[in-house]
């Protein structure tokens, strides 16, 4: 017998190998089932799937790509955090340093383009789910979770927009935060807000309205940068992760990838 094959057979009999893998190479139904069942990541999937649901021409792989892009964004984002400091003094220079002063200076590029790509794939995923009528019973609630995930994807991208602290960033946020100021009854420029007062004291003013909550101040400044940084890196990804888990769980519980009844 060829010595490599001998070695391979030996390795597979060691206690270490057997403690990790509970099955042989999945080339037969039993091991194919075990491969999916005994792996925490693969067991997101059922052991067997509808043939129509596996086809790329049916799913376009858009939901999967969106999730994969979320992983890309998480990994590149964590790496970027090693260099980026969210302060007025350093933010812009750190962004340049990420291109010029570190090896593999394309991580920010991948992160930025990945964010754009994720917005596109999440829209196309929604479009596919609509066109196949996959939101219909029993999947109504999962569609609702999906819509919220879509909104959160755009919020993730929007909060990330401010972090380079360039002209593009602050003016996009200036326009965005002034829209928050126009919230009816909740923003200082919003319709009806000026009616909310006790005597002469306004209940909603530039020190406590929706814009203030978004910017952590009355103007875009260091507190805003920090707030968007935390939202972008921790707060929204935390919520998104929870909802993704719920979304996938519901896909399984509602009957897997949709197919004709």
């Amino acid at each position: 017998m060829n010595p490599l094959r001998q070695l391979w057979n030996y390795i597979r009999k060691t206690q270490i190998w057997k403690s990790i893998f509970r099955h042989n190479y999945p080339d037969n139904p039993r091991d194919q089932s075990l491969a999916v069942l005994t792996n925490v990541f693969l067991h997101l999937h059922p052991v067997k799937t509808r043939k129509s649901g596996v086809r790329m021409s049916f799913t376009w792989c858009m939901g999967g790509l969106t999730f994969f892009l979320f992983l890309i964004e998480s990994v590149t984002g964590i790496l970027l955090m090693f260099y980026y400091r969210p302060t007025l003094e350093f933010a812009y220079n750190d962004i340049i340093a990420l291109r010029e002063h570190v090896p593999l200076g394309i991580l920010r590029e991948i992160h930025r383009w990945g964010a754009h790509a994720m917005v596109i794939t999440v829209w196309l995923h929604m479009f596919r789910v609509f066109m196949t009528g996959s939101y219909k019973p029993p999947r109504e609630f999962n569609w609702a979770i999906g819509v919220i995930l879509l909104v959160l994807t755009m919020l993730l991208s929007f909060t990330g927009y401010l972090l380079p602290w360039d002209q593009l960033a602050i003016w996009a946020i200036a326009v965005g935060s002034n829209m928050a100021a126009a919230t009816p009854l909740g923003g200082v420029e919003g319709p009806g807000t000026m009616l909310l007062k006790i005597g002469d004291v306004s209940l909603v003013h530039s020190g406590n309205d929706a814009k203030f909550g978004l910017l952590a101040g009355r103007f875009i400044g260091e507190a805003t940068l920090l707030r968007f940084y935390v939202l972008h890196c921790i707060a929204i990804p935390f919520v998104v992760t929870l909802l993704i888990a719920l979304h996938f769980w519901r896909v399984r519980k509602d009957g897997g990838i949709s197919g004709p009844l």
């Binding site: 194919q32 999916v36 052991v47 043939k51 596996v54 197919g259 004709p260």
Partner: peptide, 16 residues
């Protein structure tokens, strides 16, 4: 879709 929806394939390898 209907033509294939009753056929089930193994997730490993077809889907993964």
């Amino acid at each position: 879709e209907k033509a294939e929806s009753d056929k089930k394939v193994y997730t490993w390898p077809d889907l993964v």
